[in-house]
Design a protein around this nucleic acid. Structure first.
Length: 414
RNA sequence: GCGAAUGUAGCUCACUUGGUUAGAGCGCCGGGUUGUGGUUCCGGAGGUAGUGGGUUCAAUCCCCAUCAUUCGCC
């Protein structure tokens, strides 16, 4: 069972952990650094795959948790795999669903999740809500479907079975995410469990790949997922442990704030094997995330916020974020950003998109999503170019000082 | 012309057997969203209770007049 080279580094930026390169997958290459477009339920909300491709999206990330609930992994397997099911022939990542089970899944649509509670510092509530609807054992996790409340059980092996049935190119290990505000004792035990689960995932994954090989199907890849919250020694321990195992790449989970990137992500990436790609899970909704992540060694990002924010009217411009639903745009017939090359900016005005979103018209979601997704994808593409031509730091300074303010950008420029 | 019903926030309507600061939904103004929450979440502004009298310690509420709207009848 010989796999082609999975990741190749092209250029490294001296004095940083940044690099450019290529991830080779059975469904095409990904030039890195790259922003992986969020397509949780086997669709990038409001966009066709052609639109994703035309805004230069190189790859889509789907979510095993959502897909196992609906339509079910069996249906996707029966259809011929996720690429055929959703008619997307580019590289596809799948997330294990660990995050949903530990945060979203238990309190879906109730405004209660670990992130929001960590913002409020409401540890008791976060811990309470995280223990109410899920039960973690060393073997696996009992939890309830957010769709119908039915009881479900996932182990690392079941997660790999599901992900292989779905059939993406790159999978994530089933991990246990902890609140950054949880106690060290719990963070440590969850991390240790995540490590054992990672070994179990890897073993099952390799067995499943043998099956694929026998059938002549393409081989799938697996990333280990680093945890350890904000604790430096835990993060380093996690990176050391997982880095010694034969994963194809690594996901970094449990990072919530851009300020954590220059600490947490750096600790981890200084240890992880340089020759393997690193994916920052769930981060990348603002330029600072992208510049810092790449500077500290991230190769790929995924984040649903650009499209979610677009659907709610928050649009990126080089001069900062605007809310297109504000009344001041009612009669503004200029494009969202005069420097933007996206389909929406080339063809439509602020006033029109303002009207569509206020009227709850479906096209508004599409035009806004195209703009935001293009803005983020282009920014990562431009950062990649800036590494190749060694202008990274100049580009970063100019971009961030303009997007935020020179004062605010300062915390990201050290 | 006669009779009836209804007039409370921009709109549609509540509540009050008469008693602190008259509420809701929608709309309006603004903010949030990071391993997905389109139809969402969080704030905020906005009312001389049609108008004028009367009864009462106290009226959006009871009474009278008047105006407006709607329906019905001549």
């Amino acid at each position: 069972m010989n796999k082609a080279p999975f990741f190749e580094i092209s250029k490294k930026l001296e004095g940083t952990l940044a690099r450019t390169g290529v991830i080779h997958t059975p469904h095409g290459d990904i030039k890195t650094p790259a922003f992986i477009v969020g397509g949780t339920q086997a669709t990038v909300k409001s966009l066709t795959n052609e639109q994703v491709t035309s805004l230069n999206g190189q790859s889509i990330l789907v979510n095993a948790y959502h897909l196992m609930l609906r339509p079910g992994a069996d249906t996707i397997e029966l259809s011929g795999g996720i690429h055929k099911f959703m008619n997307y022939n580019g590289p596809i990542f799948s997330d294990s669903g660990g995050f949903q089970i530990f945060s979203l899944g238990m309190a879906y649509k109730k405004g209660i999740d670990i992130t929001s509670h960590s913002e409020k510092g409401d540890i008791a509530q976060a811990v309470h809500s995280s223990t109410q609807l899920t039960k973690v054992t060393d073997d696996g996790v009992h939890f309830r479907s957010h769709l119908d409340g039915s009881s479900l059980y996932i182990t690392p092996e079941i997660s790999m079975d599901i992900q292989h049935q779905i059939g993406a190119d790159i999978h994530m290990c089933f991990d246990e995410l902890t609140s950054p505000l949880a106690g060290d004792k719990y963070i440590k035990s969850a991390m240790d469990r995540t490590h054992i689960w990672a070994e179990r995932c890897l073993q099952r994954h390799n067995e499943l790949n043998v099956d694929h090989s026998k059938k002549g199907d393409f081989l799938q890849s697996l990333y280990g997922v680093v945890q350890g919250a904000r604790n430096e020694s835990f993060r380093k321990e996690s990176a050391t442990f997982l880095g010694s195992k034969d994963f194809d790449g690594y996901g970094i989970g449990g990072v919530f704030e851009p300020e954590e990137i220059s600490s947490t992500v750096r600790w981890v990436n200084e240890i992880l094997p340089e020759a393997k790609p690193r994916h920052l899970l769930g981060m990348g909704s603002q330029p600072a995330d992208l510049f810092l992540g790449i500077q500290y060694g991230i190769d790929t990002f995924d984040c649903v916020a650009p499209t979610r924010q677009a659907r709610n009217g928050a649009l990126y411009t080089y001069d900062g974020r605007i809310n297109i639903k504000n009344s001041k745009y009612k009669n503004d017939f200029s494009s969202i950003d005069p420097e933007c090359d996206c389909y929406s900016c080339r063809n439509y005005t602020k006033a029109y998109i303002h009207h569509l979103l206020r009227s709850d018209e479906i096209l508004g979601l599409t035009l806004a999503s195209i703009h935001n997704e293009r803005f983020i994808v282009r920014t990562v593409d431009n950062i990649r170019d800036s590494i190749n031509n060694k202008s990274f730091f100049e580009y970063k300074k100019i971009f961030l000082e303009r997007y935020y303010s020179p004062l605010k950008a300062k915390i990201f420029l050290d």
